[in-house]
């Protein structure tokens, strides 16, 4: 990391600068970026332009070559006009909405950012860490999608967003920061490959190991204990690996995933495993029930049910059993 090499003083300075940038804290949307919160600096091409411009000016002044000086001053005026143009291209940009689809830990959260403006705006970048995305606002609103790394399970606050533009020529970078008052739900990371279902029974107390159906659903690697008759001989013969056929489960199985009945592994491991079960059960269109201390989903299936279960898993805190 680059920052680690900075001296103590530099780190202190960076911290102070960031404190200044973040002085508004989290803000509820919509936020309009007015002139007070817009920052301007020359971009890299801008600095190069300045260097060439300076050389040209020195030559022009030295020889009092008036046409050269004319060009030099024309470019200076141009730079000034461009500064304004770039500034006005960002001014009064509205950050209207930031929403995030739930994501699994380790995956990127997809942020959907809605920006709006009363006038036309071009080349508006949204930046988060190292990823950026660009859009125009030709008419009132536009949407940007940004991936945001997921850091921890549960509600994750959306980090500071940066919006910048270099339109029209790219000599200046004009930017603004905003920490939107929005958060993303991060589900636990599902265990891969999905382990077998637990033996602690379904709602009706029956055996919950999935019964094989007739329909071939997928082919996977051989795992210890797979019955010989499931081996996909044709495919295995064509490759070095041994492949096993998986069959769709008969619909209507009732599965129970109970946290308290899982005895080994850390908290996160258990949640990860349960997440995998929920996903797998939903994929197989089985009915399932998730029981956590303080939460009981009931026996059901469907997207909404899955979401409820996953949300419970995402937000589960061991101490919180109310």
């Amino acid at each position: 990391m680059k920052t680690q090499r900075h001296s103590l003083y530099m780190r202190w300075l960076l911290k102070k600068i960031n404190q200044f940038f973040n002085r508004r804290g989290t803000e509820s949307l919509p936020v309009t970026f007015d002139w007070r919160r817009i920052y301007v600096l020359p971009s890299k091409p801008g600095l190069f332009f300045a260097t060439i411009w300076f050389l040209m000016m020195m030559a022009g002044l030295n020889f009092n070559n008036n046409m050269s000086l004319m060009l030099v001053f024309l470019l200076f005026g141009l730079a000034q006009v461009l500064l304004y143009r770039t500034f006005f291209n960002l001014r009064n940009l509205r950050l209207e909405q930031v929403t995030a689809q739930p994501a699994f830990l380790g995956e990127d959260i997809n942020l959907k950012i809605t920006v709006g403006s009363n006038d036309q705006k071009w080349q508006i970048f949204a930046v988060l860490d190292n990823t950026e995305t660009v859009s125009n606002i030709p008419d009132q609103t536009a949407q940007l999608t940004l991936p945001c790394p997921s850091i921890h399970r549960g509600w994750q606050a959306i980090p500071r967003l940066k919006f910048f533009t270099r339109y029209p020529i790219g000599l200046f970078t004009v930017w603004a920061y905003c920490i939107p008052d929005a958060k993303a739900l991060v589900y636990p990371k599902p265990e891969i490959p999905c382990p077998d279902y637990p033996h602690h029974g379904g709602a009706d107390g029956q055996q919950t190991i999935p019964i094989k159906g007739d329909e071939l659903s997928s082919i996977r690697d051989y795992r210890q204990g797979d019955p010989i008759r499931d081996i996909a001989w044709k495919k295995s013969a064509q490759s070095d690996q041994t492949w096993v056929k998986e069959f769709n489960q008969v619909r209507g199985k009732n599965l129970l995933f109970d946290y308290t009945q899982m005895d080994h592994g850390s908290l996160e491991f258990k949640l990860s495993r349960m997440t995998a079960w929920v996903l797998h059960a939903e994929h197989q269109q089985a009915e399932y029930q998730l029981v956590l201390p303080g939460f009981d989903s009931g026996m059901s299936s469907g997207q909404a049910h899955q979401h409820r279960c996953l949300q419970a898993l995402a937000l589960y805190q061991p101490g919180n059993q109310s």
Binding site: M70, F73, L74, L75, F76, G77, L78, Q80, V81, L82, R85, P168, I169
Partner: peptide, 9 residues
Amino acid sequence: SLALAVPFA
């Protein structure tokens, strides 16, 4: 942009 720069120049 250039036209606006002229008076300045």
